[in-house]
């Protein structure tokens, strides 16, 4: 079991302004956050609250201005396969077919061609795309692309999945189906997950814990536990869960929290 830990993490951007303080902006301020292997922590907040910056820090694409980010106590040094990212606009490689996209992490590790193709086939089957290995990326629908993206991230055998609004660009129907898919895949993989989303509904449904980020600068303002993902994993239908009174009540509560942080900002 692994833990990804943010300790008093702050981020100023751009990191090296021409003169210290000039044109700089405090994006994230004093973030304390833990994600364990069994968790799916959903980060929610309005635009400009620094959600994506938080994920980029976890991925190692950005360095914190202050504070530390550790995996099992070891400070992270840049990006690494133990924190694989799934991007909103999939970031698949159009010069590779679906199978070779998924096989890339194996190739990076030096796995021989035949073996990495076979392992990619297994992952394709796992994400429900057993026959799509030869397809070019642009021949796949948005939902299929995200499945390939998720399979590629799993191929890196990460300890944490960093999900940057992976379902944000999908139509409503596909999105609902993918939410359930994402939950099952995450549970099977045994990896911890950090999910960035701007959908309160999605955060509630998927998250074991939901963290609210308020903007200017980004601060954690609320943290709530949720158990709807377990219900879905135990066989409850997504539609039924979303229609339940308690889901609606928590949805209203979270909406209120996010709006409150917006009003505070206007008042200030």
């Amino acid at each position: 079991m692994s833990t990804l830990t943010f300790r008093s993490v702050s981020l100023r951007y751009p990191p090296r302004a021409a003169r210290a303080g000039v044109g700089e902006k405090l994006v994230l301020d004093g973030i304390d956050l833990q994600v364990a292997s069994h968790e799916l922590v959903a980060i929610i907040g309005r635009s400009g609250s620094g959600k994506t910056s938080l994920l980029n820090l976890a991925a190692g694409f950005l360095e914190p201005t202050a504070g530390t980010i550790t995996v099992d106590g070891v400070p992270i040094e840049g990006p690494s396969a133990d924190r694989a990212v799934v991007f909103q606009d999939d970031a698949l490689y159009p010069w590779l077919d679906a199978r070779d996209n998924i096989a890339l992490p194996f190739k990076l590790k030096g796995v021989p061609l035949a073996e990495r193709r076979a392992r990619a086939e297994q992952l394709l089957a796992r994400v429900g795309l057993a026959d799509a290995g030869d397809r070019r990326i642009w021949e796949l629908s948005g939902g299929m692309r995200q499945r390939v993206g998720i399979a590629r991230a799993l191929a890196a055998e990460p300890r944490f999945l960093l999900l940057d609004e992976p379902l944000g660009a999908l139509d409503a129907l596909t999105r609902t189906r993918m939410q359930e898919f994402l939950l099952r895949i995450k549970a099977e993989s045994g990896a911890g997950a950090l999910l960035i989303t701007h959908s309160i509904e999605e955060a509630l449904l998927l998250g074991t814990r939901i963290v609210v980020l308020s903007p200017n600068p980004g601060r954690l303002t609320a943290e709530i536990e949720a158990g709807f993902n377990a219900e879905v994993l135990n066989g409850a239908s997504v539609a039924a869960v979303k229609a339940s009174p308690i889901f609606k009540r928590m949805h209203a509560g979270l909406t209120g929290l996010i709006h409150a942080s917006a009003e505070e900002e206007i008042a200030a």
Partner: peptide, 21 residues
């Protein structure tokens, strides 16, 4: 694309591998 580079780095690619792949 920045995402393409970042994706490879987060999948474990070294600088040289990012360039080649």
């Amino acid at each position: 694309s920045k995402d393409h580079v970042n994706a490879a780095r987060s999948l474990g690619a070294s600088r040289r591998q990012v360039l080649r792949e």
